[in-house]
Design a protein around this nucleic acid. Structure first.
Lengths: 184, 184
DNA sequence: GCAAATTAATGATTTATTCAAG
DNA sequence: CTTGAATAAATCATTAATTTGC
């Protein structure tokens, strides 16, 4: 492991955006000349080689197809569920998920598509103040949670009226320790 | 004048200014504690809840990205048009070679080592244009090419009868080059 | 000028992705 | 492979701008 960066290409946000935009405009398998040009341009935003561009398009195209397949499968499945629901079948409380009939694509043998998730059971007090799940964690995604269970969650967001106790002022610049580095 | 409390938060000018200033200083996805503090502070200027702050940052960040993307896209398109005008197709004839691309994983995920991309075979260096012959040098030889005969660049190294499309180019503007979250 | 009609902004929700632990 | 946590993208919904006919 040489200290120097002989690692693999890490596209910057801008490089990615440009590539994605090109892809959106229809470029799929750029030829050599195109790749050269694209590479030259993207080099303005960071280290990059032609092969990176080449591979990027290859991978992106492949994963695009994959995504599309998945989506279609999911749609199909949803449709099926819907039909089942609409039928005058005996309606229990829960809808049982039947077998996964979706067409299996390639390697993805069993899709997670049948995650029929009914609204949280909230048996009581249904629609109140929309549920609040998110917001937690102190900083960028905790790579390894390890020690602490979860530093978060149970907090605020539940008092519709009372403004959050006026704590104390705070320096705008100090609370920002290390925000997500996806500055655009 | 039914005191129909507005269903949604309407930030005051001051609240907005503060939020924007925070955003400017780099805050993007404040964690729970930060949100609490921000909320407490902004409450001095008007009714506000933590979720408002949370949503504000989510939306602002998203729409910021969106804006940037649009800008880049526009530049791209302009450049493309420009390029098309300046450089009508002039591709020669070539041999179409089927190429199989090795597997790779997401561009920022761990996967197979950098693959080797051998120079195109360009066996027959006819009188055709050979621009595409010189591209893609892969610096460090991958430990072992191993597996499949990487046909690599071939497919793009030839300009078959049909250029996929009129070529596309890109903008040459220089936005700030940031390294995003790439840790070298 | 002034509201009704229309459009643009933006707050709030929902849905899809991504990462990595189990 | 599955699943939980977090986030980003897409979408819905309401408020503010603005346009338009009078």
């Amino acid at each position: 492991m040489s200290p120097v960066a002989s690692t693999r290409w890490c596209p910057t946000t801008e490089q990615l955006m440009i590539l994605e935009e090109m892809y959106r405009t229809g470029i799929r398998t750029p030829n050599a000349v195109q790749i050269q040009q694209i590479t030259a341009h993207l080099a303005l935003y960071g280290r990059i080689e032609g092969k990176n561009v080449f591979y990027w398009f290859q991978n992106h195209k492949a994963r695009d197809r994959q995504k599309l397949r998945k989506k279609l499968a999911k749609q199909l499945h949803q449709q099926q569920l819907q039909q089942i629901k609409l039928k005058p079948i005996s309606m229990g409380i829960g809808v049982e998920v039947q077998s996964k009939v979706v067409n299996e694509y390639y390697y993805n043998k069993s899709g997670p598509e049948d995650m029929l998730m009914q609204k949280p059971i909230t048996g009581q007090n249904s629609s109140y103040d929309r549920d609040w799940m998110m917001m937690m964690d102190m900083g960028p995604r905790p790579s390894y949670s390890s020690s602490s269970p979860i530093p978060c969650c149970n907090m605020m967001m539940n008092s519709p009226k009372i403004p959050p106790k006026t704590l104390e002022l705070f320096p705008v610049s100090s609370i920002n320790s290390k925000q997500d580095s996806s500055k655009l």
